[in-house]
């Protein structure tokens, strides 16, 4: 009897916890709208800009090093 009750309680606990997990809020809706890719594009653009900036700075310093030799 006690074993059965324990099993039942365990089952209920397990299902409720799994339900809780299913209800965890994630960005699914945002992604189904496809708008998340806009954010990715913006971030990629910013990072590309930083990369180009660093690259130009690097080349400028290389030029400076050559003229100073």
């Amino acid at each position: 009897m006690t074993a059965k009750r324990l099993l039942a309680t365990l089952c209920i606990l397990l299902t409720t916890t799994s339900l809780c997990h299913a209800e965890t809020e994630m960005a699914d809706i945002m992604r189904s709208n496809g708008k998340i890719y806009v954010v990715v594009a913006v971030l990629a653009t910013i990072f590309a800009g930083i990369f180009v900036y660093l690259l130009m700075l690097d080349r400028k310093i290389t030029k400076l090093e050559k003229t100073n030799k």
Binding site: T24, M26, A44
Partner: peptide, 21 residues
Amino acid sequence: VGIAIIAGILIPVPRLDITNE
């Protein structure tokens, strides 16, 4: 870093309470 920015946002992550996305 570029991969981390793009994949970091798009690739699925574990569903955890409180931390979420």
